[in-house]
Write a protein that binds this DNA or RNA. Structure first.
Length: 429
RNA sequence: GAGGGUUUAGCUCAGUCGGUUAGAGCGUUGGGUUGUGGUUCCAAAGGUCGCGGGUUCGAUCCCCGUAAUCCUCCCCA
């Protein structure tokens, strides 16, 4: 009804919103857990621009992917004096920008392994629905420079610990190895060859997938498709020896960590750059958009972006989806901290005096607020309650004349007269 | 991108078999005698009934379109 509304698939985040995904207090809490968990695991924050050269994403994510072919927010700058333009894209994922910065600033020279995290807005032009937004936010980590399965285990453990720390119990960790680029290519070829004669009987979706993303055929929800592909070749059988042993080592580590996983030989991720490890964390509590986090290894990506050959692994985790799951589960969240004092000035003179009093208290680090509208006492004390104020400071002309204020302990319902020059000390204790 | 549902006050929802001033609860604000709360009582403010057309003497209610949102696909965080 208003003339201007937030663009489709975007959300305002407000104080005291009904849905957690729109409520700033929930975001602050979740962000604090992000800071805490990354610090614990030794990951440092990196912030990159909201947009990058369009070509970066074409190169990193893959030309044939849905994201690149139809979901990117591309734009071109106005021509400069020479008629040249720049082609940019709002970041549709977090890994490519992070690695671009890693390569650009030669972070590889600073230490053998770089462990980075980001918390950033992600943009994809998709049909929006609950848990799928055109602008959403992802917490992601990237561990660069280590090729062993130990770091795979750490990255996965971090994601699991994050959800556990938030209080989400029902999670499914799905894990797979998609092999090397070469072994996967061999497998895709074999799969397509196998499916080719069956295509006339398959669903329209799968005929399309056969062309664009053959691995996805195996994920078809059609029972007919499933039956037709029941004896299709398995990716597992095409894995090279190194990928296989890497995977087995990783699963062993996960067992050691007591992390329950579900091996899913058909798990495929949306980006072309994944090799070896691929994983996804799902929740049954967010409706159709059940993937809370997804990630994997990308050992060839840094090099393809112009850096030194560098192995890497990471994940992206949807903040909005996590909040939706948390709300669905009615997880307990920390109470908002109350304020120390709420001023209840009576009359114009007192209201004027509260300007200086507030500033004095705040200058001493005391969290306080005041009524600015000259309301009746009941209303002011109600507001003090709503703000969970420890004290209400009540004063009118009489108190001002005597250089004192009445300090009311909201919980104890007791009141004391305190000299103005002693108020800071009184409240500070 | 495909199919379907929903759309009435800030929030959650009633309602009008098409007919004069569209309701409730919560929330907000004021008041229950001069300046003291979380309970309670009274009252008020707040809606072009998503938007645009059509049918009709008359539409918030019927029809069409459109937008947002939700669900199922697609895809993904």
């Amino acid at each position: 009804m208003p003339k201007y509304v937030a663009p489709k698939g975007t959300h305002d985040i407000l104080p005291a919103a009904k849905d957690w995904v729109d409520d700033i207090a929930k975001w602050h809490w979740l962000e604090s857990v992000v800071r805490e968990i990354t610090r614990t695991y030794g990951y440092e924050e990196i912030r990159t621009p909201a947009f990058e050269q369009t070509d970066l994403f074409h190169r990193a994510v893959g030309e044939g992917t849905d994201i690149v072919t139809k979901e990117m927010y591309d734009f071109e700058t106005k021509p400069n004096i020479k008629g040249e333009t720049d082609k940019f894209t709002l970041r549709p994922e977090g890994t490519a920008p992070t690695l671009r910065a890693y390569v650009e600033h030669r972070l590889d020279l600073s230490r053998p392994v770089n462990k980075l995290y980001y918390l950033a807005a992600i943009f994809r032009h998709e049909k929006s629905q609950k848990g799928r937004y055109r602008q959403h936010h992802q917490f992601g980590v990237e561990a660069l420079g280590a090729s062993g399965a130990e770091i795979d285990a750490e990255v996965i453990a971090l994601a699991v610990a994050f959800f556990r720390r938030l209080g989400i119990p029902n999670l499914t960790l799905k894990i797979n190895s998609v092999g090397t680029v070469a072994s996967r290519a061999r497998y895709v070829a074999a799969l397509r060859e196998y499916a080719e004669p069956l295509l006339p009987e398959m669903s329209e979706d799968n005929r399309r997938r056969h062309e664009t993303n053959a691995l996805r055929m195996l994920d078809s929800k059609s029972e007919r498709d499933q039956a037709l592909l029941a004896d299709a070749p398995l990716l597992t059988d095409f894995l090279d020896a190194e990928s296989q042993s890497h995977h087995e080592t990783l699963l062993g580590y996960l067992d050691d960590l007591g992390i329950v996983y579900e091996s899913d030989p058909r798990l495929v991720r949306g980006f072309d750059y994944y090799v070896k490890t691929a994983f996804e964390v799902q929740s049954p509590d967010v409706g159709a958009q059940s993937a809370l986090a997804g990630g994997g290894r990308y050992d060839a990506l840094v090099e393809s972006l112009g850096g030194q050959p560098t192995p890497g692994i990471g994940f992206g985790l949807g903040i909005e989806r996590t909040l939706i799951a948390l709300q669905a589960l009615n997880v307990k969240t920390p109470d908002a901290p109350g304020i120390a004092a709420f001023l209840c000035p009576i009359g114009d003179a007192a209201r004027g005096a509260s300007v200086k009093l507030l500033e004095t208290l705040r200058g001493a680090g005391i969290v306080c607020d005041a009524d600015y509208t000259g309301r009746r006492m009941k209303a002011m004390l109600d507001q003090a309650d709503a703000l969970h104020a420890r004290y209400a400071i009540v004063f009118g002309d009489d108190e001002l004349a005597g250089g004192v204020v009445n300090v009311r302990d909201m919980a104890a319902k007791t009141q004391a007269t305190v000299a103005l020059d002693a108020l800071t000390a009184f409240l500070g204790t």
